[in-house]
Design a protein around this nucleic acid. Structure first.
Lengths: 367, 367
DNA sequence: AGACAAAACGTTAGCGGTAACGTTAAAGGG
DNA sequence: CCCTTTAACGTTACCGCTAACGTTTTGTCT
């Protein structure tokens, strides 16, 4: 072992003077290549295989040797080459996530997955599907498969297509898919959540409630709509096709859907939007029509994305248990990576009503 | 070449009946492994190397052979193994991006980078730095280096630290870093942008303008503050330390900073927040104090994240040219990957004033 | 037609790791 | 104290691909 190989990583503040910076950019420093397992092994005076066993914490090495090897690895700053690990059939401790980062809900979910992954010593790599979702994600799964141990997929449509395209034997978990056939899935209880929303509006006294649909390529959107319809009839609320306005989970869609509802001869007194983003769009439309939220029109969303609480007025909504969903997805994926069959192919998590400022009794506060 | 090897990818709608689904989940289909270059070569009756040259569009293959090989590759659904490519010194046509997806600005920038990358036939993989940014991104750069051809880094602090940690010789481009020493950088003209904001408020007649600072670990935040101070003295505006309130580019920081400004014996008539997210926080504080935006208090932000236009009232702000920045970053990175020295180590892009609804003459519309 | 260059294609080695098996050293058992 | 088992370590082969160089074919010029 070379003397002087020890490296002291200095905290960022300590590098703020010219002398230190000069050292940082010293060509010799910059050229120092990233060390391989072979170098660790050479310094430790063992074979590469022994070094591999040591750093991966696997049996077949004595404690003494293991410690020495790990110390050396730390000192020279060894980091395993994931590409090589994966190529040779090993594990990379990396999970891939595929989703549309454009949407607030997915983005938030992805961040939660990242936290959940780090909590169990995995890193996360994200592939953001383009907004025009037509590019088949099969190749992307293959791509992530080449570097990650497993993939979590959040698609803007049902995943049968993906199942068809995907030929990897990689573990895959989906989120927000009710058909667990192709892959195990994590999903919030959309039906029960939408019932909570409707019940809330009903209890406030609303008899005529409009609904803005989501992207009905997704089961979650269909479940929410089903709950709306079911509760309308259960509570004896007015129900007609004109009260159901087509949206797409997006802002503009919500805006236009709300506009149609407001243009009715008898507009509703409350609007249930299939997700928060649609609700934001609806809010714009309501205000543009010269009405106030919530005095003239109650509004409830779904998802509880961070923005919902920050808006004025703050949006009443149904909360999806994002941290739990993320943890469940990661745990399920890790189990599959470890070769354990999923206990259940479909894990449903409960939702929760979050009452804020956009829902009041019909007719406004005064009534 | 096997007959019947041709595969017709059916559009998603076509798979919706039971018979097709059964076929999809047929074990034989599922087990079909992802093909390698060796299989392409075998079917084509050429060596692996020739197949490699063909699919990578490199010289040394006749047009006839190339076409045949590419056709076969398409038919059996060959996708290059990026891990193997990278390991053997080749290019993966993949770029890595490191940033904090939590912040709206970064998230939007990342999406733009994704589009820019796809436009030049590259894919993007994202690593989201945890909110607690203390984990040194050096390892993460190494990680992405192992799979990507280059990395674009968007840090919540100056990048000297990164330069110190990073030992890869991988091409790196940073965004929002004024010190191009370690790596070439793309940056919006924050100083000029902030001047535009101040000039706008000045022209509306504001004489007492409050400023909410950003995260001053970033040069962009310091530049904006500098412009604020410079224009205060240039325009002869009231300037005092109490008008500068410490924020951190985040919602809560903006909220608290605005609260302090409002609590002054003589509050300002307008607030310039160092970024849009801070401005949102400020808006909450202003409303909580019983004041209206913009009648009682004008408010201007910086960045023009998508949310700015969707708020009520819509936020006046300074637009950063995200698509251009993304394209510039990608182009610069690709140039570096190709071995071309960056023409300039620091590319500055112009910003733009976007007047919306939160800025009016002091005293409200009536004046 | 022979010589020779260029294009087309093949072979070898190796990227950095791991699985599988082979070998050596330590431990245990009668 | 020798034999056997087990732990500790080493060797070999290979993952899928590309760089570098070697070989064969195809012109091309005189």
């Amino acid at each position: 072992m070379r003397a002087g190989a020890r490296i002291d990583w200095q905290p960022i503040e300590a590098t703020r003077n010219a002398t230190d910076l000069a050292k940082v950019f010293d060509p010799v420093m910059r050229q120092r290549p990233v060390p391989t397992l072979a170098e660790v092994a050479k310094i430790a005076g063992v074979s590469i295989m022994t070094a591999s066993r040591a750093v991966n914490n696997r049996p077949g090495v004595s404690e003494r040797t293991r410690e020495a090897i790990i110390r050396i690895a730390d000192e020279i700053g060894y980091v395993a080459n994931r590409a090589a690990q994966k190529l040779s059939g090993g594990q990379t401790h990396l999970i891939g996530v595929i989703g549309q980062l454009h949407t607030g809900f997915t983005a938030e979910l992805v961040l939660n997955i990242g936290s959940a992954a780090r909590a169990v010593d995995y890193e996360m790599l994200v592939y953001s599907l383009p907004a025009e979702d037509r590019s088949p994600p099969g190749n992307v799964v293959d791509l992530l498969n080449q570097v990650a141990d497993g993939v979590i997929v959040i698609l803007p449509y049902e995943s049968e297509y993906l199942a068809q395209l995907n030929r990897s034997h990689i573990p895959i978990v989906t989120i927000d898919q009710t058909k667990p056939d192709p892959f195990p899935a994590i999903i919030a209880d959309n039906y029960a959540g939408a019932r909570l929303a409707m019940q809330h509006l009903y209890e406030l006294g609303h008899k005529r409630i409009g609904f803005i649909t989501g992207n009905e390529r997704l089961a979650s959107a269909r479940d929410r709509r089903r709950a709306y319809a079911d509760l309308c009839s259960q509570f004896g609320l007015e129900a007609s096709d004109e009260l159901v306005s087509k949206g797409d989970f997006m802002q503009k869609g919500g805006y236009e859907a709300a506009k149609r509802l407001l243009a009715l001869k008898r507009p509703p007194t409350a609007i249930f939007a299939a997700n928060d983003v649609s609700a934001f769009g609806a809010m714009t439309a309501i205000r543009q029509a010269g009405l106030r939220v919530p005095e003239d029109m109650s509004l409830i969303g779904f998802d509880d994305i961070p923005l919902a609480a920050q808006l004025h007025p703050a949006l009443t909504t149904i909360r999806q248990p994002l941290p739990q969903m993320a943890r469940a997805a990661v745990n399920l994926l890790l189990a599959m990576i470890a070769g354990i069959e999923a206990p259940s192919p479909l894990i449903t998590l409960p939702t929760q009503l979050v009452v804020r400022e956009t829902t009041v009794r019909p007719g406004g506060r005064g009534v």
